[in-house]
Design a protein around this nucleic acid. Structure first.
Lengths: 192, 192
DNA sequence: GTCTATATACCGATAGAC
DNA sequence: GTCTATCGGTATATAGAC
């Protein structure tokens, strides 16, 4: 129940999140986080006993925020295709911020090198997205806004993969339109 | 001009390649490579003075092998759409091997944490792929096998992103059809 | 809650014997 | 070409003072 303490824990997660999006789980240290926050390494351990704990909590927070954004989209948009376009913007906004990767996209690539708790949190993020997208594509097909000859689950997996991959390719190729362009191309190609 | 020496250098690159595909650039050490090859750490340094050198050479070899595969596809397949399907198989075969990621997909995600030489090699890989794919899509559009209302360059970026992302999502979600399913869905959606 | 100091392990890289 | 031994640096994590 200490306001300053809670504030520091949040700032630690913020710093770790940015570092993961830029360099990955194995690419940052407690000292990097400490420097970014302006405290010392043992103070970071005080808030998160281990690195696995820190990243697991961080991934859960990231997933919860994403879930809130999906709920907001469902409320703000009634047209299924408009919902899908708003979904694409969740990724293009992240990438527009200094070429940052999706937290769970980066962690998914590193899956074999992650502690079990972190890998579980990453899996939960992807399942949430695949479930929401499959429902959105099903609605879009029923509204005749998306062609009906492809399974909604397959479209969900393909769009999520295209958006995550657009960030990876964009960084690696140092060119291209990123998730914004790729999402637009994909949605145009599946349009009814 | 020592046969055994050249053989060891190849085995070192093979081991490092597998480790990168599983754990990434920051996720493996010279000791890991040495153990996999059955030699000691300084012997690895004898063949590749630094880690950056090793991975740069490895990425070049990977790109050259990919280029050979693209040439082989151009020779073996005359139908543009069949070429694109064969291209998808390059990724699904890699992923079918213990869920291994594309070497440059993994390195692309880690781009911010890579030595300059490695990042340059990764960029060359993606440019090669985007150029080949754009030409293949242009041919497919001229042959009326792919819808012509989308730019070939945009289709190239979208398919490459979808295949790279399918590996990331597949590992993170521990489910899904991987690049094989995603590639099939994408090519079906852009079919004329 | 934050700090200094430290334990323990691993990292990339080098020296020099064989 | 491979080895043992080792350097200097950094990693995660802990002990204990303030």
């Amino acid at each position: 129940m200490n306001g300053a303490a809670a504030g520091t824990a949040e700032r630690v997660m913020d710093a770790a999140e940015a570092l993961i999006q830029q360099r990955g789980y194995g690419g940052f240290s407690y000292d990097d986080v400490a420097q970014a926050v302006g405290i010392r390494k043992p103070s970071v351990h005080h808030h998160f006993r281990t690195k696995a704990e820190l990243v697991t909590e961080l991934a859960h927070r990231y997933t919860q925020r994403f879930e809130s954004a999906l709920v907001a989209i469902d409320i703000a948009r009634s047209q299924p295709l408009a919902r899908l376009r708003a979904y694409v913007r969740l990724f293009s906004r992240t990438y527009a911020n200094d070429g940052r990767l999706c937290v769970c996209g980066m962690l998914g690539a590193e899956a074999d090198a992650l502690p079990a708790g972190v890998a579980d949190a990453v899996e939960a993020f992807f399942r949430l997205n695949l479930t929401w997208l499959a429902a959105a594509f099903r609605d879009a097909q029923n509204a005749r806004q998306v062609r009906a000859d492809l399974r909604a689950g397959a479209l969900a997996e393909a769009l999520l993969a295209a958006l995550e991959g657009a960030m990876v390719v964009g960084r690696g190729a140092r060119t291209g339109g990123g998730p914004a362009a790729v999402g637009k191309t994909f949605l145009a190609s599946v349009g009814a």
